[in-house]
Design a protein around this nucleic acid. Structure first.
Lengths: 153, 153
DNA sequence: TCAACTTAGATTCCTTGGCATATAGTGCGA
DNA sequence: TCGCACTATATGCCAAGGAATCTAAGTTGA
């Protein structure tokens, strides 16, 4: 029973921390770069995985294809990303950052890095961060391997 | 620099895990109890803190007052919670669960407990869970103490 | 004691994601 | 090579949260 309570508490704390971190990153990214955290993460993924398709983004973030398509619309409308025809399959597009998008993501990454160092680094010591990082990396890989929480559409 | 990368990875892993856990809990709670995770958390808070006001819920979850007001509307509309007049301040109401709401939250808690045991317990050993729980409990208390990521309103 | 200020929460508009459906493009087997 | 099933994505409608605004109700100081 105490195991079960531990998991409930852990999940609650996790969601609370995530909400507050996300809110803070949203504020700073919006103020300094005109984007929000989900856009930062999408841009970073595209920078590190050029030539991805909409479905690849959706799988990475465990959100629906439709939502992903719309989020790419918004990035394209702002001139930060482009859909390029996929020569080997005309149903899909290959996504890439524009030059503006590349500059933006690099600048935004510095903002995020600073904010996280301040917010997390200010509360946890290096060892605790390392241990937590290891645990969530493991959990993430298991959840992804088993396709847990992957949306339908 | 590797510290900064660690924090970026940790945050990314955190958000991915949280998304997948949240998606899964949503699915199971919706299917078995007709609620979603955010409603489960609100009901649980009200069960454990009867007589709270809308602002107390908002502070707990670090979401806006308006959104909280609407979410209480929904709980009330379903007959799971009620607003009772606050005798000492007529601007606010005191919130309480109905009998149905109490039964619901207890049943839903079992569902959540089982799901988390399966999803997290299946990937991390007891020691890793305990360490992570400690870290996030600490982080949460610091973020709340410093009012970090509290929405405007 | 009343006018200015503050506080609690409700309401409105906007954005974003989920889900269902629509459409275009692929590939395979009869 | 035609057609049928499948795949990739786009689109329309709905639910939920954020920000700003509005109203009612306390509070305070001259």
């Amino acid at each position: 029973m105490s195991d079960a309570d531990d998991l409930l508490s852990l999940f609650a704390d996790l969601v609370r921390c995530e909400t507050r971190l996300y809110n803070t990153l949203n504020d700073r990214l919006r103020e300094r770069h005109g984007i929000v955290t989900s856009q930062f993460e999408a841009l970073r993924y595209l920078r590190d995985h050029p030539g991805s398709r909409v479905a690849d983004l959706a799988a990475e973030f465990a959100i629906g294809i439709g939502a992903t398509s719309k989020s790419v619309d918004r990035l394209e409308r702002q001139g930060w990303a482009v859909r390029q025809p996929n020569p080997s399959d005309r149903r899909s597009s290959l996504l890439a950052l524009t030059h503006d998008g590349s500059r933006l993501v690099d600048a935004a990454e510095a903002t995020v890095t600073d904010a996280l160092a301040e917010l997390i680094g200010g509360a946890l010591d290096r060892a605790a961060v390392a241990t937590a990082a290891q645990a969530f990396s493991k959990l993430r890989s298991v959840l992804e391997r088993d396709q847990i929480g992957t949306p339908t559409g």
